[in-house]
């Protein structure tokens, strides 16, 4: 029972970070029908930027988020303008997958040139500090990472719910044609939405680098996990994404505890096949346009 609770705690903490990583994917898919395979490499890019700031200037990885987010936001704007906007709407879903995969390869190549393929890790002084609460040990960095993810997700949720831009985004997701007729600048929403979606990934990356060692090729591990999460969550549903991410984190932790850490790497596959057999539309099927 103790083991079980410990595993669930660790799983929820990891799942919170997964939720932040995957919510950007859901946002981009909801607004633009774009599957961004480069989301994984954006996380790794965030991790490297944060790593560089920490090793060269001693900036705390959690503070570096303030720098990493705007930089990657601008990169996202450029990617949207140059590579995604030219795709024709009828082929956008499938072609976006290939185009962003190519972008991911390019960024992986650049990271390989700059940082080589050695595994890195951002190690601040408190990297191994842990809290003991009622006999359960939790690493402080994991709690910070979870807290940061919750804060960013909450801000994202508020922006979508309360602001003019958020209304424009939700309108575009529900019905792009009507939104455009009502004066929503679809192109602007798409560009800013894509920028935001990769910036949240990079924020998650800055803290990912503290918890897990990474190299330029690590994005493949991440993207397979994230794609599974958004399929489980029902493609385009933000609450679905968050629930699927936590579910993924918890089942991984349980498998790692009770069977073996290596089998945990296959969790997402088992979950995916299981869910697809029972519910092809995912847990929160937002297969039709209209939800986010």
């Amino acid at each position: 029972m103790r083991l079980f609770v410990q595993a669930v705690i660790l799983g929820v903490l990891a799942g919170g970070v997964y939720a932040l990583m995957a919510s950007g994917l859901t946002l981009a898919f909801g607004i633009m029908r774009v599957i961004n395979v480069a989301q994984g490499v954006m996380i790794i890019l965030g991790a490297y930027l944060s790593y560089t700031l920490f090793t060269h200037f001693g900036v705390d990885p959690f503070l570096s988020v303030l720098f990493v987010v705007p930089v990657v936001f601008v990169l996202g704007l450029v990617i949207e303008l140059v590579f995604i906007r030219p795709l024709r709407a009828s082929e956008r879903e499938e072609l976006s997958l290939l185009v962003t995969w190519a972008v991911a390869l390019g960024i992986e190549g650049v990271l390989g040139l700059v940082y080589s393929t050695t595994y890195r890790s951002t190690i601040p002084s408190y990297a191994n500090a842990a809290w003991r609460i009622g006999g359960f040990a939790v690493l402080q960095v994991q709690v910070y990472a979870f807290a940061l993810s919750v804060v960013i997700l909450a801000v994202l949720g508020l922006v979508l719910a309360k602001t003019r831009f958020g209304r424009a985004v939700r309108g575009t997701v529900q019905n792009p044609a009507s939104a455009a007729l009502l004066g929503v600048d679809e192109r602007k929403v798409a560009a800013i939405g894509f920028g935001l979606s990769v910036a949240t990934a990079a924020a998650a990356g800055a803290v990912y680098g503290v918890v897990t060692p990474f190299n330029p090729g690590s994005h493949y591990d991440l993207i397979s996990l994230l794609l599974t999460i958004i399929v489980l969550g029902g493609m385009g549903s933000l609450p679905g994404t968050v629930v699927a991410a936590v579910l993924m984190g918890v089942s991984q932790a349980l498998l790692a505890t009770y069977i073996s850490p290596t089998s945990a790497r296959l969790t997402f596959f088992v979950l995916l096949i299981g869910i697809l057999v029972v519910r092809p539309q995912g847990l929160f099927g937002a297969v039709e346009r209209g939800k986010l």
Binding site: F83, L98, A102, L105, G106, E108, G109, G112, L113
Partner: peptide
């Protein structure tokens, strides 16, 4: 990798 991605794009 960079060249490959360039050709692909």
């Amino acid at each position: 990798l960079i060249l490959y991605s360039g050709v692909f794009l």
